[in-house]
Structure formats: C-alpha cells, structure tokens
Simulated scan of single mutants.
Amino acid sequence: MRALLALAVMAAGVSLALPSFAQDKTNCADSANLTQSEMNHCAGLDYQAADDELNAVWAELRDRRGEGHSWDPILEAQRAWIAFRDAHCESVAAPYEGGSIQPLIRSSCLADVTEQRTAQLRDFLNEP
C-alpha cells in the first residue's frame, strides 16, 4: 500500500508542475490560430489525457495482478520509468530553456512517452 501511495505522490508532483487552465476555453483543434501560450496549454491537456489513460490502465493492471510476486517487478519498473520519463523529457526540452516553446516541447514529450508506456502496460493486461 505504501508503494502505491508513493507512486501517487510522484504522479501528483508532475501534475502540479503543469499550469492549470480550468476555465480556459481554448479550441485546441484550431491549431493554426493559437498563440504560443494556447499551444502550450493544449500540449499540457494532451499530456494530462495521456496520463489519465495510463492511470486507468495501471489501475486495471494492479487489480488483475494484485499484490505479490508477479506485481513487484511491474511496480519497480514503473517507478524507474517515471524517473526516466521525467529526466528524458527534461533533456528534450533543455535546448529551449527560457523560450516560450519549452512548455510545449516538454508536454509533448511527456504525452508521447506516456502513450508509449500505456501501450506497454496494456501488453501486460493481455498476458496470462
């Protein structure tokens, strides 16, 4: 149980680092007419959607595997993956440090890597 709490705290930390636009009505589908700030916001929304999907697949996997021998390696890998994801996307965004596009680069990377990890976790769901 402590392991799940630690994982939730790590995920929450990333979520808190992203800007909140709860009442924004940006039309992300109209990418040709967005400001840089709006594009950054839309990339953040894309990442949030990818993270929500990952968390749903993670919960299903946890429910199927439960605690125990077959779960422990998955949990360990997920913790390592979170550290990798964060470090990797920081390195991808680093060349844009101080630029207005850096949040878009970071959020896009987070979304892409998260979608890849979600597919990997889905593979675990298909195993016996």
Rank of each mutant, 00 (worst) to 15 (best):
S70I: 10
L18M: 07
E90H: 13
Q36V: 12
H88R: 14
Q120F: 13
F21H: 06
W58C: 01
T35H: 05
D46K: 03
I105F: 05
R122C: 07
N27F: 01
S15I: 01
R79K: 15
L61H: 08
C42N: 03
N126T: 10
L54G: 08
P103N: 13
P128W: 08
Y47I: 01
G66T: 11
R65W: 09
F84N: 13
R117Y: 08
A50Q: 10
L61I: 03
S37E: 06
E90F: 12
T35D: 04
N126W: 08
V9E: 08
P19S: 06
L104I: 01
A8M: 11
E38I: 02
R65F: 14
R64F: 09
E67T: 09
W81H: 10
E60G: 15
L54A: 03
A50C: 00
Q78P: 04
L18Y: 10
A43L: 04
V57K: 06
A77W: 10
E127G: 09
E90K: 15
W58Y: 12
Q36M: 11
V57H: 05
G99N: 07
G66R: 04
K25E: 10
L54M: 12
L34E: 03
E76R: 08
L125G: 05
C28P: 11
G13W: 04
S20H: 12
G68P: 00
D112K: 10
I105A: 12
N27R: 05
I105T: 01
A87T: 15
W71A: 15
A56N: 10
V57C: 00
F124L: 13
L45W: 06
P103R: 06
A32N: 03
S20I: 00
A29I: 01
L34Q: 04
A49K: 14
A83P: 01
H88D: 13
D51N: 04
G99F: 09
G44P: 06
L104M: 14
R106Q: 11
G99V: 05
C109F: 10
